[in-house]
Simulated scan of single mutants.
Amino acid sequence: MECKAIEQLLTEALSLEEVHVTQDGTHYKIVAVGECFDGASRVKQQQMIYAPLMEQVTSGALHAITINAFTPTQWKREKIFNMPA
């Protein structure tokens, strides 16, 4: 599955402010940013991401997925602390 298609699917399903998907072979990395993650546990955040992708996961179109979910406030802080010096 193409990264842009995953980004669009997640953006529409979860009303995300930002979503970035990268692919390395069969491994996908998803960084999702949205208010919908506010107050949700890490497990719940991952379940929220997996839900709209379940058809592709069960079909085998998506295999290994790494998920990082942030609220907009967390994302701003994450970008500051992880910017190259």
Rank of each mutant, 00 (worst) to 15 (best):
L16W: 03
Y28I: 15
Q8A: 15
A51F: 04
S41T: 10
V43F: 07
C3R: 09
K44L: 13
I67G: 05
G25V: 14
I6H: 06
N82P: 03
A5V: 15
K44R: 12
Q46W: 02
A64D: 06
Q45F: 02
A51Q: 11
E17F: 09
K4W: 08
M54P: 05
L62F: 05
I49Y: 00
D38G: 08
E55M: 12
F70V: 02
Q47S: 12
F70P: 01
Q8Y: 12
G60K: 05
Q23M: 12
Q74E: 14
E18L: 06
T71F: 00
P72N: 01
R42Q: 10
H27M: 10
T71S: 01
E12V: 14
N68R: 15
D38C: 08
L62M: 13
Q74T: 01
A69Y: 02
I30C: 03
E12M: 10
E18V: 07
A85T: 07
T11P: 10
V33C: 05
K76P: 02
A40N: 05
V57Y: 05
V19G: 04
Q46I: 08
F70Q: 02
L62K: 03
N68C: 08
S59W: 07
G34W: 03
T73F: 04
Q46L: 00
I67F: 02
T22F: 01
S15I: 10
E7S: 08
Y50H: 13
G34E: 06
A51S: 12
K44I: 15
W75C: 00
T26S: 12
K29P: 02
I6W: 04
Y28Q: 06
E7M: 07
S15E: 09
F70K: 02
T26N: 13
H27I: 10
H63R: 09
Q56R: 11
Y28W: 09
A61F: 11
F37P: 00
H27S: 08
Q74I: 03
M1R: 05
A32Y: 00
M54Q: 15
Y50A: 09
M83Y: 13
V33Y: 05
G25P: 11
Q46G: 03
I30G: 03
H27Y: 12
E12P: 02
K76C: 08
E78D: 08
R42G: 12
D24N: 10
E55S: 14
V21P: 00
Q56A: 12
D38Y: 13
K79C: 14
V33S: 08
S15M: 05
E18C: 03
I65V: 14
E2I: 15
A64P: 01
A61G: 10
N82G: 11
A64M: 07
E7F: 02
A5N: 15
E12H: 09
M1L: 04
V57T: 03
I65L: 09
S59V: 05
A13R: 01
V21C: 13
G25D: 09
T66M: 08
I67Q: 07
S15W: 01
E55T: 09
K29A: 08
E2T: 15
E35I: 03
P72M: 01
M1Y: 12
V31Q: 14
T26K: 14
H20Q: 14
E17P: 04
S15V: 05
E12K: 12
E12N: 14
G39N: 01
I65R: 03
E78Y: 15
M83W: 10
G39W: 00
S59Q: 11
F37N: 00
A69L: 02
T11L: 11
S59Y: 07
F37C: 00
G39A: 02
G25E: 11
R42I: 07
E18D: 11
Q8I: 13
